[in-house]
Design a binder for these strands. Sequence first.
DNA 1: GGGACGCTGTATCTTATGTTACGTATTTTG
DNA 2: CAAAATACGTAACATAAGATACAGCGTCCC
Lengths: 274, 274
Amino acid sequence: MISSIAELISDRIGTMPAGERRAAQTLIANYPLTGLKTVAEFSAAAGVSSPTILRFVARLGFQNYPEFQSALQDELAAQLQSPASRTLDPSSSGGAASPMLEATLDNMRETFRHLSDKQLADIATRLAERRGKTFLIGGRFTDPLARYMAAHLAIIQPDVYHLAGQESIWRDRLIDMGKRDVLVIFDIRRYQESLIRFAEKAHERGVQIVLFTDQWLSPIARFARHVIAGRTAVPSAWDSSAALFVVAETLIGAVTRQLEAAGAKRIRDLESLR
Amino acid sequence: MISSIAELISDRIGTMPAGERRAAQTLIANYPLTGLKTVAEFSAAAGVSSPTILRFVARLGFQNYPEFQSALQDELAAQLQSPASRTLDPSSSGGAASPMLEATLDNMRETFRHLSDKQLADIATRLAERRGKTFLIGGRFTDPLARYMAAHLAIIQPDVYHLAGQESIWRDRLIDMGKRDVLVIFDIRRYQESLIRFAEKAHERGVQIVLFTDQWLSPIARFARHVIAGRTAVPSAWDSSAALFVVAETLIGAVTRQLEAAGAKRIRDLESLR
DNA sequence: GGGACGCTGTATCTTATGTTACGTATTTTG
DNA sequence: CAAAATACGTAACATAAGATACAGCGTCCC
């Protein structure tokens, strides 16, 4: 049963030629507003010509463009009048993606339920106070999270380093690390020996460790000053790092806010550069 | 402070003549839809003439009718893009992390609402059928997502390459790319010139492009075979890539499942290695 | 009660929007 | 590899939309 135009589109998008597909994707991307604009604006947004837009709406079964717009408006009207219908229609997505999404959302809620605001604020403060250097590192699958966090933190403050490459390379960096420094480690099952060794060495040097791990806790938790335990279970062959990712983003935001509040010169300079 | 057009109207409705007041009341009655229709329809709904409608919008301070409609559309866009403000779950705790989490969860729901199972399945199939090579690349902040996806895909199938480093390095890899290959690109605002150039070149070589972008669509969408538009807005100084991350994980899972179902030898070998 | 002012609608005009026809490029098929 | 079919864009066209000028009407004030 196809009720909305959006469904109609995603149903037929596979059979469309390239240009019309661009039109469809553009419309879906911020549905349904693009469809309410003029043909010229729609075509410009999609990067195709006007006739392609008209062929697109014709393929959807509309006689002309105004008829298509009326249909969108009717749909929008129904939607605006009953906002309740927007809140998660369970029948809407019964496919393969849904269980995965639901599990991921649950994971996030659970993760944050076990994570107090104070704890997050403490970690953010620790990362924001510029006493020493910040190092980030991750495991086989979680290293991208370390990179993601490093990419942001490195912009708002100096001395942020992502440790990449081989174990021997990290080890050499241990020389630079001391009591005033922070090491952010991402480690989920299966926990990597190399990371554990590295964390232990860093801990011995007095480095403060912030650990992102799963609910079963990496052995590194022994050495960590702060432990963030994220839920990772999803109906998939792989574990999900999404909850940890969101915590990382939250932390990035919190650190940024603290630095802004502290009136960090770097942040102001940054604004002017943008 | 007057922020919405609705407020503007109720602010000035007292000073309006009878005809224009009817127009105002009609618009407010089912706001903002009537204002998006034509002047003729608006006037018919209000029971007044077209010029009265035009005088009405002129009194509100708009130069002409299209300008008025654009303002309404912008307002509607802002409203539709942040369903968080409409749902407002009171059960959520009031900490600093909470708005961020709520926005992120909304982003994910919205992202998947615009993403049909079929579309995901199509992309997964494209990635799973081993016709050619798979390349992944991302922008400044999204490259970690490309890495994350590459780290997983590279395990379950051969010929998966993450493109890292400088632009000149990618370009040299273009030689290896052809019709049978797939290029997965992550690109969100602000869209990177270098990535656009690269995508264009790859497209010219017939490479099929799968694009992960935000709801405003990177220009690369022009060249893309498949476009995944994720919501990125969160109450933070940074955009959030979390929704795209979850889509990436979902895709990884789907590809894995398809390969398992196809009885890929590599997967079985993998099991025995674990 | 008469005159002036302001509001409204009809009719006309102008603009720009949607539509169509056609030639070129691209892809598909035999 | 050739030929057919399909898809796409440019440009001309028709139409419908918004804008304007003007006259009628009601209302308020003097």
